[in-house]
Each structure stands twice: as structure tokens, then as C-alpha cells.
Computed example of a mutant assay.
Amino acid sequence: MSAETVQHIEGILLNVTLAALFLLMGYAIHDVMKKNDVPKIGRFVAYGVLGLGGLGFVVKGIIQLFYIGSGV
């Protein structure tokens, strides 16, 4: 297997692992907030922060694709 193929596989596995981690964190946050009867605004803030973190990784991936495509 070439080094480029290994890097491509590692990139895919990293993205899948990060997505799974965000889903597990979301489930843990949901469980804690449900057990402690958190108000809706608190839930909105917690999910918003988690969502913005995940969105940051998506934007980072898109920016990397643009850089790779332009040859930078």
C-alpha cells in the first residue's frame, strides 16, 4: 500500500472517529440534562456549543479540500 493511500485511509478514519465522538458526547449531554431537569435555554446553549464544535471540524475539512484542490 502506498503512503498516499494510507494517509487517505487515516483521514477517513479520523473523520469517522470524530463524528462518533461528537455523537457520544451529545448522548452524554442529553442524558445528564434529562436526569437533572435542565431548562430549555440551558439545553439550547449546550447543544449549540456542541454543534458549533462539530461545525468547526466540518469547516476545517472543507477548507482543507479547497487548499488541496488549489495546490496550496
Rank of each mutant, 00 (worst) to 15 (best):
A28H: 09
L55R: 00
Y47P: 09
K40L: 09
V38D: 05
K34C: 07
G42N: 06
A28T: 11
V45A: 10
V16S: 11
L18D: 06
K60V: 05
L65K: 09
L18V: 14
M33V: 02
D31K: 14
L18W: 03
I41V: 15
T17P: 00
A19W: 07
M25E: 11
I29P: 02
Y47W: 08
L65A: 14
G42Q: 07
L65S: 09
I41M: 08
L24H: 06
N36W: 10
F22N: 02
Q64R: 09
V49R: 03
Y27T: 08
G51P: 04
I63D: 05
L50E: 11
M33W: 01
P39I: 07
L24A: 15
D37H: 15
T17V: 08
L52K: 00
G61R: 06
G61C: 13
D37W: 04
K40Y: 07
L18C: 10
V59G: 04
V49F: 15
A20S: 12
G26F: 04
L52C: 13
Y27I: 14
G42Y: 05
G26H: 06
I63C: 04
L65P: 00
G54A: 14
V59C: 03
L24Y: 13
L50S: 10
D37F: 13
G54N: 06
H30W: 15
V45F: 12
K40I: 12
I63T: 13
A19C: 12
V45P: 01
V32G: 02
F66T: 06
M25R: 11
G53V: 06
L52F: 11
T17N: 05
G26N: 08
F44C: 02
Y47A: 09
F66V: 15
D37V: 08
V58P: 04
G53S: 08
M33P: 00
A19L: 15
V59F: 02
F66G: 05
I62T: 05
G42K: 02
Y27N: 12
K60I: 10
L23P: 01
L21F: 13
V59E: 00
G51T: 06
F22P: 01
G54L: 13
G61K: 01
Y27C: 08
Y27L: 15
T17H: 09
L23S: 12
G26R: 11
R43W: 04
D31R: 14
G42P: 02
G42F: 03
K40Q: 12
I41A: 05
V49Y: 09
Y47T: 03
V58K: 02
I63A: 14
L24D: 03
I41K: 05
V58S: 00
I62V: 15
V45K: 03
V45S: 04
I62C: 11
N36C: 07
G61S: 10
K60C: 05
G53T: 04
L18E: 08
A19Q: 13
D37A: 15
A28W: 14
A28R: 12
G26L: 03
I63H: 09
K34L: 14
K34V: 09
V59I: 15
A19E: 07
G51E: 03
L21W: 09
V38Q: 05
N36K: 13
I41E: 15
G42V: 05
V38F: 11
M33D: 10
A20Q: 06
G54K: 01
H30D: 12
R43P: 01
G53H: 06
T17W: 03
T17A: 08
I62N: 04
F44G: 01
D31A: 13
F57H: 10
A46W: 08
R43I: 01
